[in-house]
Structures are given as structure tokens and as C-alpha cells.
Amino acid sequence: METQLVLEKWAGVISALTIGANKEDGGSRANIVRIGGQGSLPLLFKEGSIPNRPVIAFEIWDTPPQDWPDDLTSAYGKVLNDPFAWADKCVNELKAQLLCVRMQGAHPDFGNKDPGEAANFISALLTRVKVPLIIIGSGDDSKDNLILPACSEAAKNERCLIGCAVQDNYKTLVASVLADGHHIIAESPIDINIAKQLNILISDMGLSLERIVINPTIGALGYGLEYAYSIMERARLAALSGDKTLASPFICFVGQETWRTKEAKAGYEQGVIWEIITATSLIQSGADLLVMRHPAAVEKVAGYIDSLFNK
């Protein structure tokens, strides 16, 4: 007897979003990246359409990283000292579809770059590589309120994804993103209510819900992964049940969280395994964008995504 699948019917759909603008869209990107658009829970292909795969972005910094463990830096070598060479390596050698650049050099403690320098850097990077960009601030709220608007303007019309807006500091970024035609990352501290509230606050300013990507804040394996997993799952269930204010794709900073664990720092390539497990787990809870660091981990996870989607 044939087995009958019990299928759930969903009322909602996750918003679909395009990162990067090519010539037709008024930008200069060679490729664009689409995420979101799901009408079902992750990987339940029979329950609804899943038009886009999870996408991996390589994380690069505008300044040489200082706290990265040897296992990680050795994978890149000398290019870490030159952000442009680093970007080249990711795109040309490692075949990155998307780069996530962290403006760490603007942080008051790590170079304190001024808005002009930050904007010049983004302009130069956009000329050097032709993949779409995710631009992340330094993590210092007041500094980011100065440099991110400059970066946003420098990348005008390139339809970047810029972040992160948080509940206590979102207005400046929303205004820039709105003016320059980008999308925004809304970060909430593993809290479905705050995720939702921030989406409402952002859309109240006129940036449509369809232009928001949620950063739910994740923890690496052993560091709260299960909390992030269940928060993402709950948000997705609410979104698919029709809650538009939660129907945004997820971005997960897998590399950042993995490489701060003591297991990753201990060496023996544990970090790579840690990054892979964290990423693959989050894919199952609905991650749409994974920002990763180690090329070997990226390769494995990309293969995993292929195997899931080439059914």
C-alpha cells in the first residue's frame, strides 16, 4: 500500500528578497542573490514551494582581523592583510556568490576609521568585486550611526543588505537604507517578540517588511544553538500561519559565533567541524543566509545544500 503523506497547508509565505542590483536594475553587480519566498517549513518540499536555496556569504573585514584563531587565519594566509586581495580570493578562488564585509576598522578601538574612509572603502570594494555585498557595522552603535549612512550612500543603487538595526538603534540605518535602495538586517537577541517588534518599528518608518532580513542572533554548537534553533522555528511557524510581521528571511552569523568558541580556538580543525555543524543545523531550522568564515567549512556546507536540493 502506498504511504499517504500528511501535508500541512500554510496561509503565509516568507518574503522573497533580492540582494545585489545588476545593470538592468541600475546597479553594477555581475550576479544577484535571491533568498526567501518559502511557502513551507525548511526542506518540506511537498508542503509548499521553496524557490530559493540557503546561500553562504563569505565574511571579510576592512581591517586585518586580530582575534581570529590560527586554524582560521592559515586558511587565508597573507590576503587577510589586504581586504581587497581577501575579497578577490573569496570571489575568484573560493567562488563566493556574496560577500559580507564587516566594517571593523571603524570601531573606536580598532582603527576608528571616519565615515569618509569607510565610504571610500565600500566604493573601492564595489569596483574590485562584482558580487553583491552585505555590509555590517563595527558593533559600536554611535560610530555605526556615522559610518553606515556613508557606506549606504557609497553603495547607492547596488541593493546591498546592511546591518544591523537593533531595537534601541534603528532609525538612522532605516533612513539611509530607505534613501539608497538597500535592504536591512534587523537584529534581535534570540527573542521572537523583539524580532517582531523591531520589524514593526522599521516598517512604521516606511521601509516595507519585504526589505527586512531577520538576524535572530544565534549561538554556535554548545553555546545556545538549540535556543536559536527553536526561536527560528517558532518565528517561521508564526510567519507561515500568516503573521506578516515575522515573514522575513533569516541571516545567521555562523562564522562569527563558531570562531569565538573555545573548541574552535583549541585548534585541531575542530573549528571547521563546529562551523559545519552549526551551519547545517540552522539550515534545518530555516536559515536563508549563512555568513561563514572557513573555506573548508563553506565547501562542506555548500555540498550539503546541494545534496538537499538536488533531490
Binding site: D191, N193, K196, Q197, I200, D243, T245
Partner: peptide, 15 residues
Amino acid sequence: MDEYSQALFFPHTDL
């Protein structure tokens, strides 16, 4: 607690 957290918004997280 969940109900309370949702109510920590004006007027409410669930509009």
C-alpha cells in the same frame, strides 16, 4: 511570561 513579553510594546506585539 510569553504573553507578558508580547505586551511589552505599544499597543501590543501582535497588532
